[in-house]
């Protein structure tokens, strides 16, 4: 019985659903709440974080036997900071407008707990291939989380989705949605939604076991 394909798929899906960084682990809230005022911002922040996550986890996993455990945190931070700097330059080269919109939150990816958490809990114990796939899953999960917030906030806050107007000229923007409280409202609503889903699932499960 081949164990490999399902294992890889599991590693990938872990970050997307079961251990979703935004909705399940509630990690990295600072960029989640701050930059998700529009779909484009959310997507680029997600992609930038995913890039840093995948490459730093890959490098850490590659060097895991070499890194002395006494200085591992310092090492991780150096590696993560390196890739954040790379992302910083790349975003500046791609679009200054995007760079201004994301502001300090690009540099703050360094202290995003998802990345350090993955490095410590996963990449330092697994071979590079698995670590990178897991990191990719986490990154995609984070991006999905950011998009879930970003699209809702953009639709209400500006009446657009990825810059495309949805409601025509005279749409009344809900200013609160692009302000910080809007981030909390939308995040809270999503958490409520997932909690309701979870509860329903458990009730069904309980009914099923009762019937059986």
């Amino acid at each position: 019985m081949s164990q490999s394909p399902p294992r890889t798929w599991d590693e990938f899906m872990e970050g997307i659903w079961r251990q979703n960084p935004v909705f399940v682990m509630v990690l990295g809230m600072c960029p989640t709440l701050a930059v998700t005022v529009s779909g484009v911002n959310a997507l680029s922040m997600g992609v930038a974080t995913t890039f840093v996550l995948v490459f730093s986890c890959g490098l850490i996993s590659l060097l895991r036997k070499l890194i002395p455990k006494e200085v591992r945190i310092a090492t991780y931070i150096v590696i993560i900071a390196t890739f954040v700097t790379v992302v910083d330059y790349v975003i500046q080269a791609v679009s200054l407008a995007l760079y201004d919109a994301l502001g300090a939150f690009i540099q703050l990816i360094v202290v995003n707990c998802i990345i350090l958490g993955r490095a410590e809990a996963h990449a330092s114990k697994t071979p590079p291939g698995v670590a990178m796939i897991n990191a990719l899953g986490m990154g995609v999960g984070f991006t999905i989380g950011l998009l879930a917030l970003g699209t809702v906030r953009e639709i209400f806050g500006a009446g657009t989705l990825f810059g495309v107007a949805l409601f025509g000229e005279s749409f009344q923007p809900w200013v609160v949605m692009v302000l910080p409280p809007g981030g909390f409202f939308v995040l809270g609503s999503w958490l409520l939604f997932f909690a309701a889903l979870e509860r329903r699932k458990q009730r069904k499960l309980a009914e099923a076991t009762q019937n059986a």
Partner: peptide
């Protein structure tokens, strides 16, 4: 407070 923030 919500509408004040949403529709100033």
């Amino acid at each position: 407070a919500f509408v004040q923030a949403a529709f100033p």
